[in-house]
Design a protein around this nucleic acid. Sequence first.
DNA 1: CTGAAAGCGCTTACAG
DNA 2: CTGAAAGCGCTTACAG
Lengths: 344, 344
Amino acid sequence: MTRRPTIADIARAAGVSKGAVSYALNGRPGVSAATRERILAIAADMGFVPNRAARSLSVSSAQTVGIALRRPARTLGIEPFFMELISGMEATLSAGSFGLTLQIVDSPEEELDVYRRWWAERRVDGVLLCDIHVDDNRLDVIAGLGLPAVAVGGPVEDGKLAEVWHDDIEPCREVLEYLYALGHRRVARVAGLPHLLHTTIRDAGFESAARELGLDSFTGIHADYTGEQGARITRRLLTAPARPTAIVYDNDVMAVAGLGVAHELGLEVPERLSIVAWDDSPLCRLTHPTLTSLTRDITAYGSKCAEVLLSLIRDEPVAGEGSRSIQFTQAVLSPRGSTGTAPE
Amino acid sequence: MTRRPTIADIARAAGVSKGAVSYALNGRPGVSAATRERILAIAADMGFVPNRAARSLSVSSAQTVGIALRRPARTLGIEPFFMELISGMEATLSAGSFGLTLQIVDSPEEELDVYRRWWAERRVDGVLLCDIHVDDNRLDVIAGLGLPAVAVGGPVEDGKLAEVWHDDIEPCREVLEYLYALGHRRVARVAGLPHLLHTTIRDAGFESAARELGLDSFTGIHADYTGEQGARITRRLLTAPARPTAIVYDNDVMAVAGLGVAHELGLEVPERLSIVAWDDSPLCRLTHPTLTSLTRDITAYGSKCAEVLLSLIRDEPVAGEGSRSIQFTQAVLSPRGSTGTAPE
DNA sequence: CTGAAAGCGCTTACAG
DNA sequence: CTGAAAGCGCTTACAG
C-alpha cells in the first residue's frame, strides 16, 4: 500500500509553500515559470493526484454528474436503450473529467429523494433526467433546488430545464407513409407507457398521419415495453377479426416479441404481416427476418445530453445552440426484412 | 435556490458547539440525551444532510464503490447481463448508503489507469472487477494498491483478491447429459471470448463431459458474444457436412442470433436443431420457440458481490463465509421450447 | 457531559 | 513573484 502524496509533500520537496504548489498545478499565475516546472516535475515524479474530497470541499463542486434510473431491474436489463445512452453520456463526461454516479430507484418519490439528497450532500453538480412524463413534477423540484439538469427527452418547452429532444412526429409520418406505399391499410401500434411524454407525442403523430393518409383502421394500444406485454397484445391483435397487416412497436424488445408471436401463429413475416420497431438496437438484426426499424444514434444522443449538462454546470453557453431546448437528429426509417407489400 | 445548512448553523440554533452536533448526529457518546434530541430535531427541521466532501475528507472514505466496464458500448448495450448485474450491485450499495460510480473504458490499460486514479483521488473505497481473464494482471495491480476489490467471477483462487464465482463445470455436464438423453450425439458450442476465465472453465467442462458421454462429435468455436458472430458461426456449423443436431451458446444474444439463422435456413427448431443458451435473460422468452437456457439469478449475484465488497471495506468478516473465495449458486437448466429429441 | 481546537487536503484572497 | 493564513464542512482526540 503506497502512500498517497499531498501538496504538502510536494511543497516540502520543492521548498515552496502549499499555495505555490496549488498555483503551479492548476496553471494559475503566481509562480515563476521555473518554479512551476520544478513543481510539476516533482509532482509527476511522486505520482501526485489531488484528493477529490479536499478539492470538492474547497471549490464546492463534486466533478460528478448523477443519473437515477427508475424502471424495474429486469426491464432495464433487456432494454439496450439505457446502456447505450449511458455509454454515450459516460464518454463525454469522462472526457471532461467528470464522474458518473448511478442510482436505481423504485418509485417517483424515491427518485425525488435521491435528487434532494444528492443536492444536499453536494454529491453531484448536475443530473440527467430520463423518461420525461406528462406533467413531470421532477422538473419543478429540480428547478426549485437550482440543480443543473438536462431533461433527456421532450420537448417540454416550459423553460424550467434544459432539454435535448428529437422530433417524433415526422418519423411517425415516415413509417405510415412507407407502410401505405406498400399497400397496408390496417395498421396497429403497440405503444409505450401512456404517461411518458414521448408516447403522447407519438400518439398524436400517428393519429394525425393515419387520418391524413385515410387508413382503413389504425389501432394504438399502450404497453410497458416488456416482451410479455408485447407478445400478449400482438396475440390479441392478430387473432381479432380484420387483423392488421402491419404492426409498429414503440421499442425493439416488444417488436422482437411480436415477431415471435407471428411465428407462433404461423403468420409469415413479411408476407402476411409487416413489423416495424422503434429504436434500432443490435436486437433488430438478431432475428430472422431482421427488423425494419426507426434508427437513431442513442450513444450520440447520450453524449449530447452530457455535453449540454457540462455546459450548464460550467455556466457556459451551450455550444452552437441558441436556446436551452435543443433538438437532436430525428429517427430515420431503416427498412429491413420484416416489412413488405401488404397481403391482398 | 435554498441554502444548505451546515453543522455550524445547527450548532448556532441549538446553542451548542459543532462537536456536539457531530456527536449527536452520529449517535456517539458525548452529549446528553436531552441535547441530542434537541439537536436532532433542529437538524431535521433544517433539512440537514451532511456535505459528502467534508465528511469524506475527515474520515478518509468516499462512501462510493467503482465499476469499470470494458467492452464496446454496442456490446454492453445488448447484453442484458450487465444491467442486471449492476442493478443488483446498486441495490445493495444504496441500502448500505454507498454510491456507485461507473466508468466505461476502451482498453485494459485505460481500465488500470482508472483504478489507479480512483485510488489516488480517494474517489472510491473499493472496486468491482468484471470479466476476469486468464492471468488477469488487474488482480496484481489492485492488490498492490491495497484497494479493496471483489472479482466478479473466478475462481482464481490465488488469494490476492476476494471473489464471488459459480461452478460452471456442473452446468456443462447437466446440459450435455440432457441433450444426450434427448438422443443428440453431434453437439456444437459457440463459446465466449477465449481469454476470459469462465470461457476456459466451460471449455474444460464441456470437453470432459462430452468425452465421458462418448458423443460422436463435440465442436467448440470461440466468438465475441455479438449477434453477428453468433449468426456467422451458426451458419458455418449448419451448412457443414454432418451438421450438429444441437448447439449450445455461451450467452443469450448469440443464441437468439443462432435461432434466427436456423429460421433462415429453414431448419425447424427444435425438430431439426436444438438450441441452448447460457444466461436466462428475458431475451430467451422473447423468441418463438422460447429458448432453453442455463438460468442464474444475475441480480442476486450482483448483490452478493457488492455485499462482499462492503464487508471488505468495513473490514468486517464476510457474513456466513469462511474464506474470501465465495461460491455462488450455480446455473441450472431451464428447458423450454428450443430443445427436443434429436432427428434420426 | 460539554466546549474549544486541531486536522483532513485542497484553494484562494491578502500581504509582502 | 512568493509566503503565511484563512476557509471549505465535517470528525475527533483533548481538556475542563
